[in-house]
Amino acid sequence: MSVDQTDITKVALLARLEIDEADVPQYVDNLSNILALVEQMNEVDTDRVVPMAHPLDAAQRLRPDEVTEVDQRDRFQALAPQVEAGLYLVPKVIE
């Protein structure tokens, strides 16, 4: 299946990626080629195959319910573009 400009715009929106208008045709091209590669998968019948999400057939390990972390806010917020009063700031969110 090949993608068109609308698909690119939609996917970029979902992924929150700004794409330069001028680059859209190239993305259309690239993604269509990649999908053409990917569609070789259809050559195999997989009707009765159980999907494999993980390389190892293991079960989730559980952690004891203990508080092991200490407050490192200052350290973490030193990395943030904008903070105030201990809060991360973003442009006003309207609900």
Binding site: E84, A85, L87, Y88, L89, V90, P91, K92, V93, E95
Partner: peptide, 15 residues
Amino acid sequence: KSLHEDFHGSTGIDL
């Protein structure tokens, strides 16, 4: 939580 009190037109995030 998003705190919508005004931080100079910004929203504050408490995680």
